[in-house]
Amino acid sequence: MFAIASMNGIVIGVIYALSALGVSLVVGIMNVVNFAHGEFYILAGYFSYLFATALGMNLLAAMTLAVAIVFVFGLLVEYTLIRPTYGDDLYSLILTFILSIVLQNAYLLIFGPYPNKPPGWVRGATDIFGLFMYGNQRLAALVAGTCVIVFVFAMIKLTWFGRIIRATSQDRGMAELNGVNTTRLNMLSFGLGCALAAAAGVILAPVFPVTPTAGVPVALTAFVVVVLGGMGSLRGCIVGGLTLGLVENLGAAYLSTGYKHVFGFIILILVLAIRPSGLFGHKEA
């Protein structure tokens, strides 16, 4: 039981990390928490389902298109809703929260309350070190999630865009003085944050089907991971995501299934009580 719970924890932890990366990126650059993060995740799940099932598109193409559409949608949301509130955290919180409820109800209206599931990528299961059989779809999700994370880190470490992101999240004023167009950067990073939520969504939708409100726990977990890892720290997302995934799944296996998600919040409470700036946070309390 320990082995399979750990395996589940790692798979889900990678997806948590991926989803949290999107939140953390936006917090680091814009100091905005996107409360509609989970709804972007769900949106991508719905799109990949639609393209693959209803339109019969190639799976990879359907997923890429879904992520691309959510990215553009994110750009639009930043342009219409977030940009005018910039510098006023209060209204960005209010607006993204309202947006999340609006999207949930719109999904309900369009797709109905039933779970929707895009087709799986692979079938069958693999024998893991002779310990247990593990679903190939979950293994594929693990590989895909890891690839996206590696891609994001490579982009941030190696490219010019990544350097700007790092500079801006360290000192916004200085970056502006050095000629960084922070307006465009905000828009891009918000879109990128949404696209990361979308990537998590398309990867996980074949395992956990999407429903209109399924994004709420996803977003909440991403927030817990971000606080645990330290606001704006990308490394923290990886460590935080894996920790949370393992704690939840081991807790569910040994303590109580019903309280699976509460274990995450217990971590949140502990972090706030003991080290409120998180594992990798550099902000002074």
Binding site: M231, L268, I269, A285
Partner: peptide, 20 residues
């Protein structure tokens, strides 16, 4: 628990509280 940190923490924590 959360008010000595910034305002965003209150929003996150209360949302988590409501879910718990």
């Amino acid at each position: 628990l959360c008010l000595r940190m910034g305002g965003i923490y209150l929003s996150l924590t209360t949302l988590g509280f409501s879910e718990i």
